[in-house]
Structure formats: structure tokens, C-alpha cells
């Protein structure tokens, strides 16, 4: 009969696993990357004329190099930007200086919807701080988000983020599009 195999000493197992643990603690990070997702527009075709858009359908948002904001021709504080954007896009009273609507057939939402033609034109100076730019982007995104939430609550009774059905998400996105146009870079005095 074969000799009885001596038991392997497992005493140093703890040390080995500690070593591994410390390796993983130092070599990995825990931070989750979060951010504002955006899509850049494709490069402009120089031969193509810029589309003709009525003045009332454009909301100008300028940020100058001193991080001051101008919305629709008037100086504005960042705290009012969201409100003004919502007013401009939703335009419940059909005020003649805010965006026009067009009728779009969206069967998922039960027939024709009034979709805003509004476009937000964002311009910034080269000297604008990145922080300010992100704040502006954030306010614009949250304005669109709020409008979507409102519509979503009305139609489906849930917030937009809680919507699971792909069709419904598409429908809401169609009814409240994100129309943020970033200008070609140029110096703003």
C-alpha cells in the first residue's frame, strides 16, 4: 500500500490570498464613470446652404469668455435657463416669439402630437470655462428631460427613465426631440 500522503500545510494560504487582495486593491479603481452623453454633428458640407429656419424657432444661447450667459438676446442667469428653455419649447400659449409647432402622427401616443420646431443654438467663446459649458449643457438637458417626463406621466403614468418599452421610448423621443445645435467655432466678441 502506498505511503500515506502527508497533509499539505495550508497555513500560508492566508498570506497568499492577502497578497492577491492587496494587488487588487492597488491595481483597480472603483469609480464609476458617469457623464453627459452627446452626439457630435458630422462635418459640414461647405457647398450646402444652411437650412432656412424662422427666427422665432431659434433660441440663442451665448456664453461669453467671462462665463456670462445671454439667452434669446437678453442677459440671463444660469438658474433661469431651464425655465426659459421649457417655456420656449413647450410654448403653451402659442406666444409669437417662442417656437412654432407642427403636427406629427405618433400612433403610440394616440394620434397627432404637437411637436415643437424649436432649436436651441448654443454658442460659446474659446475663453469660456468648461465648467460653465457643462452647466449650460446640463440645464438644457434637464429642460428636455422635464418635458419628456411630463409627457410620459400624462401618457403612460411613469417617468421617462422608468419607461422600458423600446417603442414607447422612441415615441416620446419623437414627440420631444433634443434639438441642440452647436455652432461652428468662431470668435465671439
Amino acid at each position: 500500500m502506498a505511503k500515506k500522503c502527508p497533509e499539505i500545510n495550508a497555513g500560508s494560504m492566508a498570506d497568499i490570498s492577502f497578497l492577491l487582495l492587496i494587488f487588487f486593491l492597488t491595481a483597480t479603481t472603483m469609480d464609476v464613470d458617469t457623464g453627459i452623453a452627446r452626439r457630435l454633428p458630422p462635418p459640414l458640407d461647405p457647398t450646402q446652404e444652411p437650412p432656412d429656419i424662422k427666427k422665432r424657432n431659434i433660441l440663442d444661447v451665448f456664453v461669453n469668455k467671462n462665463n456670462r450667459l445671454m439667452v434669446g438676446g437678453r442677459p440671463c442667469d444660469i438658474s433661469q435657463l431651464k425655465e426659459k428653455t421649457i417655456e420656449f419649447i413647450a410654448n403653451p400659449t402659442n406666444y409669437e416669439h417662442y417656437s412654432e409647432k407642427r403636427e406629427v402622427e405618433i400612433p403610440e401616443l394616440g394620434g397627432t402630437m404637437q411637436v415643437s420646431r424649436g432649436i436651441i443654438s448654443l454658442k460659446n467663446d474659446r475663453g469660456t470655462a468648461y465648467d460653465m459649458y457643462i452647466q449650460v449643457q446640463n440645464e438644457l438637458a434637464s429642460a428636455v428631460d422635464q418635458l419628456r417626463d411630463e409627457l410620459c406621466k400624462e401618457k403612460f403614468g411613469v417617468n421617462f427613465v422608468d419607461l422600458k418599452d423600446e417603442e414607447k421610448i422612441k415615441a416620446i423621443q419623437k414627440a420631444v426631440p433634443v434639438a441642440i445645435s452647436e455652432a461652428e467655432p468662431e470668435e465671439i466678441k
Binding site: T34, G127, T128, Y130, Y133, I134
Partner: peptide
């Protein structure tokens, strides 16, 4: 991008990204 960076260089980078067709971007924020 650090929050104190000026937009000029960020715009340059974005233009380069547009040229090569990397349209999906994400501004990292907390």
C-alpha cells in the same frame, strides 16, 4: 476634462473628433 479648462482647446478636440467620425462622446462629470 478639468473644470477650469477653457473651451478653446475642448472645441479643437471636438473638431478633430468630428473630422474622423467619432461622433459619440461623453462629457465626464460627477
Amino acid at each position: 476634462v478639468d473644470k477650469d479648462v477653457k473651451m478653446g482647446i475642448v472645441t479643437d478636440v471636438k473638431q478633430e473628433l468630428r473630422k474622423v467620425g467619432a461622433f459619440k462622446i461623453n462629457y465626464s462629470t460627477r
